[in-house]
Amino acid sequence: MTVLDAYCNIGGTGMGFWLAGFDVVGVDILDQPRYPFPFLRGDAVETIAAHGQRFDLISAGPPCQFDCTLTVGTNQARRDRYADLLEPTREALEFTGRPYVIEQPPGRASRRMRIDLTLCGEMFGLRVLRHRNFEAGGGLRLDRPSHVPHRGRVAGYRHGRHYDGHYFQVYGNGGGKGTVPEWQQAMGIHWTDVRREIAEAIPPAYTELIGRQAAAQIGVMDEAVAS
């Protein structure tokens, strides 16, 4: 089975699908020299529309700057710098006719999605929360695991005081957010030691779960189409 990992970044998403048994090809508009699988540099929406039908599954996590909290209200001018990629990405995915999944963080973008699944690091025993929402399409169905209660604080500084905690904040550089090895362990990402790359990824455990569900359905869907 094959998956197109669109907006692949460093490959947290792709690694999860690989662990679930997929051959992975990534596409991103920027070079990703530490991406661990075959890589295409190019526009994700154009690549999905032109080549997505060749893959058994397509995964897409469009950049969320257009809808993030840093571009709300008085920061509208900052928002205007970014393209709204969610709708064009969905249109390209639907055009292929292939099973797909869209990933977004909580926020305004997720309010424009059908949220079929929400995942959190605690569900996988990871020391990071990193909630992410997923919309499935093209006949793919995702089962919802139970959202496990969180265990205590996130480590870091609050109002000048440092707190120990079970979880790490995997973003930024200050605030006692943890070392690079701690981030790597918390996220399950070990093929890069660049903070920015780790911070922009999702834990591979998320898409390994999705990939195993997808793998169980894809053969059945293809047989149905063939008959």
Rank of each mutant, 00 (worst) to 15 (best):
S110V: 12
M113I: 02
E91R: 05
R112F: 13
E103S: 02
L70H: 12
N75I: 09
L117P: 00
D80F: 09
R78T: 14
A92V: 01
D116S: 06
L93K: 00
R98V: 11
R112Y: 03
A77T: 14
R112V: 10
E87C: 04
Y82P: 00
A92G: 02
T71C: 14
E103V: 03
R98D: 05
L117G: 01
P106E: 07
G107K: 14
I102C: 01
G107V: 05
R90D: 00
N75G: 04
F95N: 11
S110A: 11
R98Q: 12
R81T: 10
L85P: 04
Y82N: 02
R78M: 09
L86C: 03
Y100A: 02
D80Q: 15
L93T: 00
V101S: 01
R90A: 00
L117K: 02
L70K: 10
L86V: 09
L119P: 00
Q76F: 04
V101L: 08
E91Y: 03
R108Q: 05
S110M: 06
A92I: 03
D80Y: 13
T118A: 06
E91G: 02
Q104A: 11
R112G: 13
P105S: 09
L93N: 00
L85D: 07
R90S: 01
T71N: 15
R81H: 15
G73W: 10
D80M: 07
S110C: 03
F95H: 12
Y100W: 08
L119Q: 06
D84K: 15
R98N: 14
T71L: 08
R112E: 05
Q76Y: 14
R111L: 13
D116P: 05
E91H: 05
P105G: 14
Q76E: 08
R98M: 03
E94K: 04
T71G: 13
F95E: 11
R78I: 10
A109R: 09
T71Y: 07
F95R: 04
L85R: 01
E94Y: 02
E87Y: 07
Y82E: 15
E87P: 01
R98K: 03
L93R: 00
Y100F: 15
F95Q: 07
E87L: 11
R114F: 10
R98H: 05
R98E: 09
M113R: 04
A77N: 04
S110G: 15
D116Y: 08
Q104E: 06
L119Y: 03
A92N: 01
Q104M: 08
R81Y: 13
A109T: 15
P106Q: 10
D84S: 12
P88D: 02
R112K: 11
L119K: 03
P99K: 07
Q104F: 09
R90W: 02
P99A: 11
L93Y: 00
D84W: 01
L85Y: 03
